[in-house]
Computed example of a mutant assay.
Amino acid sequence: MVRKLKLRRSRRLKADVAWWKSEAQDWKDIAMEHAAEIDRLKKLVIRVPMPVVVPESVADEMKLREVG
Rank of each mutant, 00 (worst) to 15 (best):
residue 1 M to V: 12
residue 3 R to V: 07
residue 3 R to W: 09
residue 3 R to G: 06
residue 3 R to L: 09
residue 3 R to C: 06
residue 4 K to L: 12
residue 4 K to N: 12
residue 4 K to Y: 10
residue 6 K to Y: 14
residue 6 K to A: 14
residue 6 K to M: 10
residue 6 K to G: 06
residue 6 K to F: 11
residue 6 K to D: 14
residue 7 L to D: 11
residue 8 R to P: 05
residue 8 R to S: 11
residue 10 S to W: 12
residue 10 S to M: 07
residue 11 R to D: 07
residue 12 R to F: 03
residue 15 A to T: 08
residue 15 A to S: 07
residue 15 A to I: 02
residue 16 D to E: 13
residue 16 D to P: 05
residue 17 V to M: 12
residue 18 A to E: 02
residue 18 A to F: 00
residue 18 A to D: 12
residue 20 W to A: 07
residue 21 K to M: 03
residue 23 E to A: 08
residue 24 A to D: 08
residue 27 W to I: 11
residue 27 W to M: 14
residue 27 W to P: 04
residue 28 K to P: 04
residue 28 K to F: 02
residue 29 D to K: 03
residue 30 I to P: 04
residue 31 A to M: 02
residue 33 E to K: 13
residue 34 H to P: 06
residue 36 A to C: 00
residue 38 I to K: 13
residue 38 I to D: 12
residue 39 D to E: 14
residue 42 K to I: 01
residue 42 K to Y: 05
residue 43 K to M: 02
residue 43 K to T: 01
residue 45 V to A: 01
residue 46 I to F: 02
residue 48 V to G: 10
residue 48 V to Q: 15
residue 52 V to T: 05
residue 53 V to P: 10
residue 54 V to R: 14
residue 55 P to H: 09
residue 55 P to S: 01
residue 55 P to C: 00
residue 55 P to Y: 00
residue 57 S to F: 03
residue 58 V to N: 10
residue 58 V to Y: 09
residue 58 V to D: 14
residue 58 V to W: 10
residue 59 A to G: 00
residue 61 E to Y: 03
residue 61 E to L: 00
residue 63 K to H: 07
residue 63 K to S: 07
residue 64 L to P: 05
residue 64 L to F: 11
residue 65 R to H: 05
residue 65 R to P: 01
residue 65 R to D: 00
residue 65 R to I: 02
residue 67 V to G: 07
residue 67 V to K: 15
residue 68 G to R: 12
residue 68 G to N: 12
